[in-house]
Design a protein around this nucleic acid. Sequence first.
DNA 1: TCTCCTATCGTCCGTTTCGGATCGTCCGGA
DNA 2: TCCGGACGATCCGAAACGGACGATAGGAGA
Lengths: 172, 172
Amino acid sequence: MPDNQLTPVSYVVLGLVAQGATTSYDMKQKASRSVGYFWNFPHSQLYAEPERLAKLGLLEEEREEGGRRRRVYTLTPAGRKALDEWLREPTSEQPQIRDTGLLKLFFGEGLTPDELSALARAQEEAHLARLAVYEEIADAVTSANHAAVVRAGLLHERTFVDFWRELAATRR
Amino acid sequence: MPDNQLTPVSYVVLGLVAQGATTSYDMKQKASRSVGYFWNFPHSQLYAEPERLAKLGLLEEEREEGGRRRRVYTLTPAGRKALDEWLREPTSEQPQIRDTGLLKLFFGEGLTPDELSALARAQEEAHLARLAVYEEIADAVTSANHAAVVRAGLLHERTFVDFWRELAATRR
DNA sequence: TCTCCTATCGTCCGTTTCGGATCGTCCGGA
DNA sequence: TCCGGACGATCCGAAACGGACGATAGGAGA
């Protein structure tokens, strides 16, 4: 059982390869418009991590002959197994959030109503922007699960748009 | 202007001290039941960071005489200024999320309906548990801003409880 | 066909963060 | 007085971070 030393990012890589990504750059492209929205990481991981997974026998690495001699990855049976086992194990882990806006609200007891509503408006706009992105993605989605994830994103953004909007209103 | 090299955690520390926390352990206690819910970080930062801030002149550090000789921190005028300036600057930064449940959903195209609903139930319960925590906190809150933050937490958890519950239902 | 130019792509590396192991200290009870 | 468990603080190796930098491809124009 070659797991445990696998991090969430490991599974992101395995999952992306399973969904047809072949090279690190390819993963980067795909992640930046999908899984990256709810699991953030630097793109450099997508170069380091597959290498590690190849060493563990979960990916097979092949070098292109010509041109950039890019590393092309495919899932090994062991990799498929590791991914499947992880997927099948329900998680009760708590999502982690890092929200600067809430941070400022939390510590912003001394802010004037104007300053507070400026914060609220800025945050509302940020969430609206993200909402627009999700709406655009929603139209292009084909798989049922991806659709569900996008739906979660939409619900989440709408919740926060409402939250900040109301906050600006009540503190006026 | 001694900022820029300040991270969000720096402001968490400054904010906690401004709210009356005095020692690292004290911050740890307070953070773990409040700000820690929407800005996660390891407790060891609460020992390293104040030291850094003291060096920058934003906190004053004083050693207790007897006993554990703990470091007791207070805000300097410069620290207060740095905190206030940060608070007053509205942020349009996007919140970051790391949600293992959504990750599994995203990659879980091959899951059976049963496996999927097991995931959904586990996630629903995790969010319910967090919701209960927030409800408890909500009763004890005094400041308007803290109340607002808790409200955001409540709305967020309810959104996700609903999301996972519906998902379990529609895929049955 | 050659030469730029720009977008694409990949790697590297110094700095932070992470998170848990570990160790000292305090306090209450037997 | 001794012991045990909670409290409090520190440390450190490993991992993540993120941005700078450099290489390559492919197309436009001459």
